[in-house]
């Protein structure tokens, strides 16, 4: 474990908690893309299948449980508990254009042609594009609540920090996973536009508004 990975995990966890609290406290999922949250639930499910078979550490197992449980809870709140506030008209990104190519790619490019490894690879590829429906929805509505932009910032920073974690691990642990690194780069690049707006607008107290 290194500081970059730890801060990355904390950033990821806080993003998940911010979103859960935003929906639960405001009893509304306005401006939140249910499709992205569905994709995240798929990402965690396909990535943590080894949750019961491969014990790494208490930290690793407990974080995995929290991630899976909170992603399902978020999907449940959006599509069931507060579905009256779900803005389906603006959450129109075609997720099949994300799921099918990443599924095919995970069969073609992976470290080992075994079910668990292919599912892990699929989850890595899917995670790199899972935020697109949410970013698409923000651009369609032309704006995002400030709390939603904090959620997006924390979520984007987590994988950026993981990039530094992989540099660190390559340097000091001879650890190198090209699939995770390339997908992590793609994921981080997708946030660049948002990062720019967040830093130039939200941090100055303005509302996040995208040119629609």
């Amino acid at each position: 474990m290194n500081i970059f990975r730890f801060l990355g995990d904390i950033s990821h966890l806080s993003a998940i908690i911010i979103l859960l609290l935003k929906i639960w406290k405001s009893r509304s999922c306005a401006g939140i893309s249910g499709k992205s949250q569905l994709l995240f639930a798929i990402v965690f499910t396909t990535r943590y299948l080894d949750l019961f078979t491969n014990f790494i550490s208490f930290y690793n197992t407990s974080m995995k449980v929290v991630y899976v449980a909170s992603s399902y809870a978020t999907v449940w709140m959006i599509y069931s508990k507060f579905k009256a506030t779900y803005d389906g008209n603006h959450d129109t990104f075609r997720v099949e254009f994300l799921i099918v190519p990443t599924a095919i790619l995970s069969f073609l490019v992976n470290h080992d042609f075994t079910p668990l490894e292919i599912l892990w690879t699929f989850s890595i590829y899917l995670e790199s594009v899972a935020i697109l429906p949410q970013l698409f929805m923000v651009s369609k509505t032309g704006e995002a609540e400030t709390i939603t932009s904090h959620y997006l910032f924390a979520l984007g920073i987590y994988r950026t920090l993981y990039l530094f974690n992989w540099i660190w691990r390559y340097q000091f642990e001879e650890f190198f996973d090209l699939i995770a690194i390339v997908a992590g780069l793609v994921q981080t690049v997708l946030y660049c536009d948002f990062f720019y707006l967040y830093i130039t607008k939200v941090l100055k107290g303005k509302k996040l508004s995208l040119p629609a």
């Binding site: 995990d9 790494i56 974690n165």
Partner: peptide, 10 residues
Amino acid sequence: DEETPQKDEL
């Protein structure tokens, strides 16, 4: 095939 990197990350 080359060694699969260990899966100790979240």
